[in-house]
Design a protein around this nucleic acid. Sequence first.
DNA 1: CGATGGCCTACTATTAGGCCATCGGTGCAATAGT
Length: 480
Amino acid sequence: MNIDQLLREQFGFDSFRPGQRETIESILSGHNTLSMLPTGTGKSLCYQLPAYLLQGAVIVVSPLLSLMQDQTEQLKRRGEKRVIALNSFLQYEEKNAALANLNRYKFIFLSPEMLQIPQVIQALRQLQVSLFVVDEAHCISQWGYDFRPDYRLLGNVRNELGSPLTLALTATATEKVRNDILNGLQLHTVKEWVFSVNRPNIAVHVEKLQDQMDKQARLIELVSFFQKPGIVYFSGRRAAEEAVHHLKQAGVERTAFYHGGMDAGDRLLIQHQFLTGELDVVCATSAFGMGINKENVRFVIHYHMPPQMESYLQEIGRAGRDGNPSAAVLLYVPGDEKLHEFIAEMEFPDDGQIRQMTEHGIAARDVQPPLSETQTRFAVHYKQEAERKNINPFRYISQKREYLLERKAIKRKEIVMWLSAEECRRAGYMRLFNEKRAEQQQCCDVCGVSLAAFQEKTVITRSEHREHWRDLLARLLPEK
DNA sequence: CGATGGCCTACTATTAGGCCATCGGTGCAATAGT
């Protein structure tokens, strides 16, 4: 059966979306493949379809449990029963049973952390693995160094599994990040399919504001004004919660916040309500995003800038997947980038803490002041690496921290330069991906596009919506 | 760093200001206790 027939008969689609055919043919001709496909292209088809033409199991490494659940359910709905997600949702006995019978499954979903368990590797080694898939592969570069170091060990895992044919999928990765992915996976020969990061139907705006009060007021004005649904991104949980409060006072009722501090049930509820259209606006931290497949998001506002351009593009890419005009607005108050500086520094142990672990033999959990989970993971990971390489652990860990902080500082500088430049926004971000901007309508604020086109289409009768935002603010917020 | 919230004080009855402490993101797996 050829891939077009399979697409029709097994998946019920008439034609491939951009990049799917290239990726699938590349895999089927036996090439390790890295595909950067536009958001909303249907990346999962790129491994699901070839799975039926290859002998053996497909291993899918996924960053989030919720993504794994989505994918397994999607497959099961289509009638594929040979699917399992090996994760902490499984009870001890269930996990053992699954590991003992892995050859029953065609699709095996795992987290990078699971792939560090010897028992799991042992079981996978008994299998014929036809394809090793790394979904959201930019996580190797973005999360792998500090937040989830097990991402950086996927190359070793792949070797232990006999270096199977490999597919890395992502929507947003600069050349540097793509190299990072290839190095991380220890892929030497690879076919790369890189499609444009540009999303021509998204108008990109940056607005500079005087202070936080102005910004708050502008947010309320924009959200009230814009065609919905939309997403507002914040760098802090509390800021997201407060914005919901203010928006509701301003008459935007169907709005809720979403962040990593909420319990799983609440998060699922909000996500579901947004997808089904019960909510118009979600005020979220970066926790909200991966796996949000909603076609008709009309705007993405950044109340705080993200820590780097890739995150920004990833986040605005959640707008306009249906191809209709959508708006991305970044609100910037000079100094906003400081927040990310502090968040970054918080992530790493200081020299005193590292010294306790390396030179005084104190266990990570007994270090004073106590280490966060992320700090512990970072320190333990690189201590082990230093010991393996037989070099001074204190200096190694300390240098790693400085290197990563510097890397993050460079990324921050990049996005600050971008939003401060008086150059076409689109030309600016496309250059980071070695692309040239094509002429287009609805480009950006520098090119002179007005946000008026994105106004809510329903007739606004509530009088407060016609107030100037300063009057609105004065009424809503107590005097300073 | 910088925004915010709680607390104290002053000194008079309700609120204002100053000071200090706190907080600031992303998630896996495993574990303890209900």
